[in-house]
């Protein structure tokens, strides 16, 4: 009973944060800011859902697969965000008008 309350609670928290991530993807201005929302909230949200599944299932095949899924998401999501942001900066995708400073572009011009 308690296990079900904790498990479903974690799943609901995960879904809520996934929702915030998607909302950020729509509302924030440029590629880089959208990546921020996409990496943080979606990693945490999906991690929460998988942790909830682990709590519900316990130490069997399903549970271990969920744990492995969490580890892979936590490794892959920042790496993908890094690759996308690096690539979009190299292909000269402009930052938003609100941007105050871009030291990366300054340094690359000096080279």
């Amino acid at each position: 009973m308690i296990r079900e309350i904790i498990g479903f609670g974690l799943i609901y928290i995960g879904v809520v944060f996934d929702f915030f991530g998607v909302l950020g993807l729509i509302r924030l201005p440029d590629v880089y800011n959208r990546l921020q929302a996409a990496t943080k909230s979606v990693t945490f949200g999906t991690g929460g859902i998988l942790l909830g599944i682990f709590v519900l299932q316990g130490f069997n095949n399903f549970g271990f697969k969920a744990i492995l899924g969490i580890i892979f998401i936590f490794l892959a999501s920042p790496t993908a965000a890094h690759a996308i942001s690096h690539a979009s900066h190299r292909s000269n995708i402009k930052l938003d008008e609100k941007t105050v400073v871009d030291q990366y572009a300054e340094d690359n011009e000096n080279k």
Binding site: G24, N33, Q36, A37, F44, L95, K98
Partner: peptide
């Protein structure tokens, strides 16, 4: 830190004006 990050992003996204001040620093 991840929990703090998520609450922060959720606040920024829900806020009606989206109060961000972005930039790339070294």
């Amino acid at each position: 830190e991840i929990i703090k990050a998520n609450v922060h992003v959720a606040y920024l996204v829900v806020h009606p004006k989206v109060p961000i001040n972005p930039g790339i620093v070294k």
